[in-house]
Design a protein around this nucleic acid. Structure first.
Lengths: 106, 106
DNA sequence: AGGATAGGTGACCAAAAGGTCACATGTAAA
DNA sequence: TTTACATGTGACCTTTTGGTCACCTATCCT
């Protein structure tokens, strides 16, 4: 399986996107801490984190018996660059900002 | 199913990403033209295009008996904005440009 | 040492997704 | 008005994926 295939497949699941949201809010969490936020057993959470790690979206570091998880935003940026060229970026950006404002998320 | 779920699920399949690549290169193609680029029957191609359309990644317009397909980059930009905030964007962008250069894709 | 805590593996099952086919509708052109 | 062309639908099958469980390893603390 290619690198980008792993990234897109990893992002396809809502639980995994939620895990990225958690790490985006605060990095360096352990498996147990992340698992406690999910409606799922530890084994399910582990599988999801493994998928994210193999895709390079999450990087980890061992600290004693704990495993700390960190978000890696680089693959996300590469997605963006694939279908939005530098010439159209300005217009698209304007459109999405408008969308945010209309939704009250600005 | 939520909007963003549809987008991410649509992007999870390599055939659908290839279809987006084709439309990124040149817009306004018919189903038959797109299908001829795939190693698959017309029915498979139709299913994929339907998924892309329901996700809002592709918009269509009828012209007689033909259906023309166009790429819509807005949902892609929204993915980017979800996990890359304005403060870290500068650094991430620098990293990805470096990656492109190292791969000879600059 | 020994119990408690944090993380890991492989098998297993149900649900979802990718792909094909028989069949059907609408439009263009002779 | 036939004939060919472009697109559309529902059923069907196979493979992949999400989730759980029994069982296992490593680290910390008393």
């Amino acid at each position: 399986m290619s690198d980008d295939d792993r990234v897109f497949k990893a992002l396809a699941d809502p639980t995994r996107r939620f895990l990225l949201d958690l790490l985006f809010a605060r990095d360096g969490r352990t498996l147990t801490e992340l698992e406690s936020e999910l409606e799922m057993t530890r084994y399910g959470a582990m599988k999801h984190l493994k998928v994210l790690e193999e895709a390079g979206l999450v990087v980890t570091r061992r600290s004693g018996r704990e495993k700390l998880h960190f978000l890696n935003p680089v693959p996300i940026r590469l997605i963006h660059d694939r279908w939005i060229d530098k010439y159209t970026e300005r217009q698209v950006s304007a459109l999405t900002e408008l969308k945010h404002e209309l939704e009250g998320n600005s």
